[in-house]
Design a protein around this nucleic acid. Sequence first.
DNA 1: AATGAATGAGCATTCATTCAT
DNA 2: CATGAATGAATGCTCATTCAT
Lengths: 204, 204, 204, 204
Amino acid sequence: MTRPSKPEGQTFIEEARRKQIIDAALQTIAEQGYTQTSFAEIAKGLGITKGLIAYHFNGKHDLITSAIHTILNRQGAYIKSHVDGKEIASEKLQAYIGSSFEYIEQNRSHFVALVDLWGSFTSAEEKEAFSRAAYDPCRAHLKKILTVGKNQHEFAKLNEQTMATVIQGAIDGVMLQWVFDPEAVDLKDASRELSEMFVKRVKK
Amino acid sequence: MTRPSKPEGQTFIEEARRKQIIDAALQTIAEQGYTQTSFAEIAKGLGITKGLIAYHFNGKHDLITSAIHTILNRQGAYIKSHVDGKEIASEKLQAYIGSSFEYIEQNRSHFVALVDLWGSFTSAEEKEAFSRAAYDPCRAHLKKILTVGKNQHEFAKLNEQTMATVIQGAIDGVMLQWVFDPEAVDLKDASRELSEMFVKRVKK
Amino acid sequence: MTRPSKPEGQTFIEEARRKQIIDAALQTIAEQGYTQTSFAEIAKGLGITKGLIAYHFNGKHDLITSAIHTILNRQGAYIKSHVDGKEIASEKLQAYIGSSFEYIEQNRSHFVALVDLWGSFTSAEEKEAFSRAAYDPCRAHLKKILTVGKNQHEFAKLNEQTMATVIQGAIDGVMLQWVFDPEAVDLKDASRELSEMFVKRVKK
Amino acid sequence: MTRPSKPEGQTFIEEARRKQIIDAALQTIAEQGYTQTSFAEIAKGLGITKGLIAYHFNGKHDLITSAIHTILNRQGAYIKSHVDGKEIASEKLQAYIGSSFEYIEQNRSHFVALVDLWGSFTSAEEKEAFSRAAYDPCRAHLKKILTVGKNQHEFAKLNEQTMATVIQGAIDGVMLQWVFDPEAVDLKDASRELSEMFVKRVKK
DNA sequence: AATGAATGAGCATTCATTCAT
DNA sequence: CATGAATGAATGCTCATTCAT
């Protein structure tokens, strides 16, 4: 359970293989669903054997955890690069929401997989760990933006924890509907709507 | 493939057993996760044999589908009973959001299970079918409320589809965070916040 | 294993039900194959419950055995009625072969089922018991015809056991090919050919 | 559905294991009957796990099909090697019948299994496919022998399809009786009788 | 005589994992 | 590094059988 991802001293090939396998896993999960995704299935799509996957990861749990972190880190980096370019807090908030949806739209399969992966957590502890890995950084980032805005006298005084929760929640909830049926949701409209509404809501 | 849940004339015992099994399944899923939830596990928790589950349901898919519909129908009925009691559109909207969170809070295990169950849909077709069963009625209900408000000259003209999407999305997204870590989210604060914000947003 | 079919004192309904169930079983086996034929499947085709089948038969083995005996007895009676009408041995032999094929042709589903049912015998003992029930009477009948012919100075002296074996074998072997693919075999041609050949073979 | 037995490049071990498993399956079927023959049972007799059988075969259908083809091919090769050594058509026919029975006698368990396996075909399509795989080559071989005899002016003109059907049928039908009770049938006598009779029948 | 709820053993199949090569 | 043979536990599901009603 608490085994490390894999011991230190990774070679280049080691790292490259892990990345390759994670990407293949993500694609397979998005295409076939988590329950249908076996080591054998991932290996087939990669032209390697399932034994090799077992060699590079400490079990399925390690692979899944790594895959989730990969998605989350990539999206986080994408958002950060857009938010950091802005000076004004309201623009930062708009950038956060806008770039979140941009990344989602450009990487649909990642989020299809992510929604599937939620079901792979068996215990309350794992769920909580996921929460810390996935939501804590997001809410922290949002809270920082809100605090900056307040300090710059642009934003009103508000419950930042709750506001961060609902902003992130709205993004995720819209994404979720789009994952289940992309036809049913206009991602750009929703992005614009949320952006406008939340900026108006937090401004003085 | 598209077999009905179970044909005609259900006896009292039949109905009671199905209900009992569904509730046990929901509890087991919430506790152990969908992937760990087997017929054997559910049966063990009930003190019956797994054969009996197979006797009352046409396979696992039938059980899962029935479980999801149970959650959705119960919540839908709860929300409807609260919304219908209100005359004014803005109060209807507040009732929708408020009762959504009330039901969620009172039935946490159902939603822990539901989030897990999202990952049980294998094909794009199943995902879409779920979307139609779960989201379409919600968005339709919200749109009706928004239309009523517009007709009563209480609400402004707005893109009702998008607004319904983001309202439902915000509710679900906040619920999601709470499912993963109830400590990290204050459901009542979030409910109040979303209620206020959306009412303000849609009013003329 | 050695349980009786069912205790004495059968009522009319009892007998009628057994007959009805046997016929339904035969039809289901012919249509779906023995391995796919469950009590439930037979019951469904009959509009009764599988519990009732269990009530009227001492287990599946009893039902299968009864079904086989039914086929065999009916065919035996049919053949006997045709053979007994003839005075001359060669005509009796022709009647035996001809009426065998007639019955087979008119009751294809019985023989499709019979071929399937061979696979239901698990032990050497059961196979031997079937042999005694199915082949001994046939070979005995044929031997009697051959002996009559010899005594009437119509047939030559020959190994009656072997001749009976090959005559019955030829009938069954042709039937078998026809069961697997009725298009591949012309039953009437085969019947005529065997009839002619064997009569010529045994005649002085 | 129509998956190949197993794809390309079989290694030595692969081939050896498949052969080993097929032979064990044949033996188990002959001893216990098809319906009692599970992967677990076969594996037990081999001292391996049932998982390994699943690893080497694409399901039970693949295993059974392979087993049947093994029997048929071995017998076919045996018969061919005996028939091809003869020049004269009547000797070819005698070799066909004689070597058929020789092979049957030396491999009783194979035919005990084969008779059981007849019942393993569920649909009419499978039965027909088996007919094509098993009977068509036999009847074709017999027809060729008959045609050669006719062309060599040794055999009379006759309906070759029907004659092939009854010759093969007689062989199979006698084998069938012997399979159910080896005591009841003298295979050598039957072989001699059929050989003599059919040669006399087809000769000019 | 008949039902249908319930059982329990058995089945083919899947799969992460191990390990000798 | 990489393979692929082998394992063993688990899974959904089927089914003959039992039995209270």
